[in-house]
Design a protein around this nucleic acid. Structure first.
Lengths: 123, 123
DNA sequence: GTAGTTTGATTACGTCTGTAATCGTAATGA
DNA sequence: TCATTACGATTACAGACGTAATCAAACTAC
């Protein structure tokens, strides 16, 4: 088993990043939008534990799950992988694609410019 | 079979986007950096044809392959999917992650700012 | 204390992906 | 013309993934 977090598993992680620890029942409840049975969600939790990105503690007869890795770590990894895979590491190409594809609001544009300015100055 | 282009298949597409039509042998030659046998590359070409993202014309006993979909289309799709999947559509979060993770050169920063300015004005 | 319920563990199964090998047929070379 | 080669088509097979069902143990309700 690779220890990469799959698409579905990622959605489970999002729940745990938002709040943890949670029992499997809690996680299921927070994923009702998805048409997953509780069996399916439990499978994902199991795989996440095997992949060592989620831990659990025993609470009587049930487990309470918590993420081991932080959200920003996973986002970073996935982002780097995506950048390399799809854009061969060319960040200009990547940003150009996103900026042109999304209609960005003025507020978003300002925010991003601020981000770039900050980046330009602090090194 | 889903018609999504997998990671390996994507690399084959890159070759065809760079130059086409190409015979399978040509494609194999242009992928020597990868440790794929010509069998493997041929499998990928076959799958890409089945997924209807690559077409071929017969040239005597061999096929000449060409991409059906354009690179920017695929990049767009993959980018949107990634944005939704990993960042729930929050482009500010996405760009912040990329900008903070990569050390961007001054040139890149200038380019990106120019991009944002252009975007701010033309609508 | 015996039957149901809850919950985690194990097993299942089809599809996709990575990675080929084999088969059939056409071309080529001796 | 007979063996070899080159190529596409078909088949293979293990691991990952989506999606769950079943099993076993513990707990709950009579």
């Amino acid at each position: 088993m690779s220890n990469r977090v799959s698409e579905s598993e990622h959605k489970v992680m999002e729940v745990l990043w938002q709040e943890s620890p949670l029992s499997s029942g809690d996680v299921v409840a927070r994923l009702q939008q998805h048409d997953w049975t509780e069996k399916t969600v439990k499978s994902f939790l199991n795989r996440l534990v095997k992949k060592q990105v989620v831990s659990f503690t025993q609470d009587g007869r049930r487990y309470l799950y918590s993420p081991i890795v932080e959200r920003h770590e996973v986002l970073s990894e996935e982002s780097s992988g995506f950048l390399e895979r799809v854009f061969k590491g060319d960040i200009k190409q990547l940003l150009a694609t996103f900026v042109q594809n999304k209609q960005l609001s003025q507020e978003e544009l300002d925010y991003l410019k601020g981000l770039l300015d900050k980046e330009a100055n602090h090194d």
